[in-house]
Structures are given as C-alpha cells and as structure tokens.
C-alpha cells in the first residue's frame, strides 16, 4: 500500500505509442502491443513498469493486458475485435486519448525520441515477426544474464526450436541485423 490511483505516465505511454503506430502498422493489435512495449523497455530503456515473462509465444505481461482494458474503459483506447482468421484486436486511440496523453505529457516528451525510434525500427513488422524479434532479444539477454555460454550456431538452433515456423536462414539474418544494431546487448 502507498501511492494509489492510476499510473498515468504508463497509461500515457501506451496511448501515445498506439497513436504513433497508426501510421506505421496496418493492424496494431494486442500481440503487437505486447511486443512493442517489451522492445521499448528492453531495447530503448523506457521503464514503463511492466514485468515480462517468457512463454512459447514470446515475452508477455499480464499487467499490460489488464491496463489495456482499464484504458479502454476510460476512453483512452478503442479495441475492436477483428474476425479475419486471426483472433486478434485492432487497437486505436479512443475519443479521450488526448486526455491520457496530456496527463503524461512530461513523460511522453522525455521519451518521444525513443518512441519514434522503436516505431521506425520495429513498427512495420506484423505480430509474427515482432514475436520473433522479441523472442531473440529476450532469449539472448536471458542467456547472458544467466552466464550461459553458447555459440552463434547454438543460439540460432535455440531460436529455431522456439520459433520453428521460421527458416534457419531467416532467423540467422534477423539475429545478425539485431546484433548489428546493438539490440542484443542490454
């Protein structure tokens, strides 16, 4: 118990990311939101206060999922079910999104360049590709944190094990790209 109420800074960042993603992504849904917030925290060091855990579907945070419902309820976001073969949602700014962004104006200003950067680097990928990239970054950093030594080939094999629907060559290219950008180092 202590400070209560709503974490406006965190909500504001979620709404701001959603607003900026509208131009970058054809469909910005719940999976893409999870992965983009993970990347914003892990790669760009913006502490949104979310604790991600790892599953076969990559990094996931249940608190973020809950926050989306709260923000939607208060008009900051609009979540629409999209019945198009995927079971996903389309997330857009709600009619009160301006209010959320205003409440978090200082935080948004402070991290504005990083929001732009994460969208420029990752915003055009679909949920499946975002899941691959966030999985690679999570797995690489976790191995490093746990002092697990492994060769590049062994790491490619691990990612292929976790994401078998991607070919080895594609995984290798993505790892090389992320490594080249310095995203694998924490």
């Amino acid at each position: 118990m202590g400070a209560g109420g709503y974490p406006w800074a965190r909500y504001g960042l979620v709404v701001e990311l959603t607003a900026r993603m509208q131009a970058a992504s054809q469909q910005f849904g719940k999976t893409a939101m999870q992965k983009m917030i993970y990347l914003l925290q892990a790669v760009y060091g913006v502490d949104c206060g979310y604790d991600f855990s790892f599953y076969t579907y990559g990094p996931y945070c249940v608190d973020l999922s809950r926050d989306l419902k709260i923000i939607e309820h208060h008009g900051g976001l609009e979540l629409n079910f999209v019945n198009s073969g995927t079971w996903g949602y389309s997330i857009k700014p709600g009619d009160k999104s301006f209010h959320f962004r205003e409440k978090a104006a200082n935080t948004i200003r402070q991290h504005s360049a990083k929001l732009d950067a994460v969208i420029e680097e990752f915003g055009n990928y679909n949920a499946k590709e975002l899941e691959l990239r966030s999985t690679i970054i999570y797995a690489y950093r976790d191995a490093k944190e746990n002092e697990q030594q492994q060769s590049r080939d062994a790491f490619i094999e691990l990612v292929h094990n976790l994401k078998p629907n991607f070919g080895l060559a594609h995984i290798e290219n993505v790892i090389a790209h992320l490594d080249g950008k310095g995203f694998l180092c924490s």
């Binding site: 855990s53 790892f54 599953y55 999985t135 999570y138 746990n146 697990q148 691990l158 976790l162 078998p164």
Partner: peptide
C-alpha cells in the same frame, strides 16, 4: 522463471502453472 533455453518442449506446458 520461464528461461527460453528450456526450449518449447517444456515451455509449452508453462501456461498450466502460470497462465
């Protein structure tokens, strides 16, 4: 802890404990 190095052979069952 959900360590990725476990591989999907075990991680696939993790949702039974925490999901």
């Amino acid at each position: 802890k959900g360590i990725p190095a476990l591989g999907r052979e075990l991680l696939i069952w993790r949702s039974i404990i925490t999901g």
